[in-house]
Amino acid sequence: MSYAIIGFGPIGQALASAFARNGIEVSVATTRDPESFTSAAAVIGPSIIPKKLADAVKADIVFLAVRFESHQDVAKALPTWQGKTIVDVTNAYGVPPERLGGQPSSKALAQAFTGGRLVKGFNHLGAAVLAQDPALHGGRRVVFLASDDHDATVEIGTLAETLGFAPIKLGGLSEGGLLLQARGNSWGQLIFKDLVKFD
């Protein structure tokens, strides 16, 4: 299984830190030349591999950590996303609901990634919190997941556990996705909720 993070701002770097903590190799890419962020990747760890966007999107699981408005540019990097799982880490805050066709932001985004399986997740925590070790007080920091594809949810839930988080599945994008989305001037009810699960 191969992994990539598209977007290397604060959230992308926080996700990269989670992979680095566990010694898992992950490609990182932006629309810029990889040389422009090679030093930032090296600071996080040797398992963080800067690549060109066209190469990074070859991964099996792709974390989309770009501005919501940039998702279509990423989607165009491949003619089809068949066989890939996309983790939507974006927030559409400031994007008018009518621009989303009245849909949850993840459903609108999924339409650009033809053939891919989409999971909404890892977006409800701020970058500074997401970057921290998820092991807390004898428990694990929670990440919420929502998807219309059960198998994709299981796959990303297993990865979340490998990264040290406690995944909580919220159902489909029209139910759980609404709790995790930002759009217009509103935030979903679970955004910024920093919870710890004790097993």
Rank of each mutant, 00 (worst) to 15 (best):
M1P: 09
S2K: 15
Y3H: 14
A4G: 09
A4Y: 07
I5V: 12
G7A: 09
G7Y: 12
F8K: 02
G9R: 13
G9K: 14
I11R: 06
Q13G: 05
L15N: 05
S17H: 14
A18D: 06
F19T: 06
A20D: 10
A20L: 03
R21G: 12
N22Q: 12
I24C: 01
E25N: 02
V26N: 05
T30Y: 08
T31R: 06
D33R: 13
F37K: 03
T38H: 12
S39I: 05
A40M: 08
A42D: 04
I44H: 04
G45E: 14
P46H: 11
S47Q: 11
I48Y: 07
I49W: 06
I49H: 13
K52H: 10
K52V: 07
K52W: 11
L53C: 04
A54K: 15
A56C: 10
V57P: 05
I61Q: 06
I61A: 00
V62S: 11
R67P: 15
E69Q: 15
Q72L: 14
V74L: 01
V74Y: 01
V74N: 06
A77V: 02
L78T: 10
L78Y: 04
P79F: 11
P79D: 15
T80F: 00
T80H: 04
G83S: 09
T85D: 13
I86P: 13
I86W: 08
V89F: 02
T90N: 07
T90K: 05
T90E: 04
G94N: 13
P96M: 03
P97A: 01
R99S: 13
R99V: 04
R99I: 04
L100W: 08
G101C: 08
G101P: 03
S105N: 07
L109Y: 03
A110H: 01
F113K: 07
T114S: 12
G115Y: 00
G115H: 05
R117C: 01
G121H: 08
G121A: 03
H124W: 07
H124Y: 06
G126L: 15
A127W: 12
A131T: 04
A131H: 05
Q132M: 11
Q132K: 15
D133N: 15
D133I: 02
P134Y: 12
A135M: 12
A135E: 15
A135W: 08
L136S: 07
V142C: 00
V142Y: 00
V142F: 00
V143D: 01
F144Y: 15
L145M: 06
L145Y: 01
A146K: 04
S147N: 11
D148L: 03
D151G: 10
A152M: 14
T153L: 00
T153W: 00
T153V: 03
T153M: 01
V154Y: 00
V154K: 04
E155V: 01
I156L: 14
L159C: 09
A160Q: 03
E161G: 10
L163F: 10
L163D: 02
L163I: 02
A166N: 11
P167S: 04
E175K: 15
E175D: 12
E175H: 11
G177A: 09
L179N: 07
Q181S: 13
A182S: 13
G184K: 02
W187P: 07
G188K: 02
L190K: 13
L190S: 09
L190P: 02
K193A: 11
D194R: 13
L195H: 05
L195S: 04
V196K: 12
K197G: 10
K197Y: 12
D199V: 04
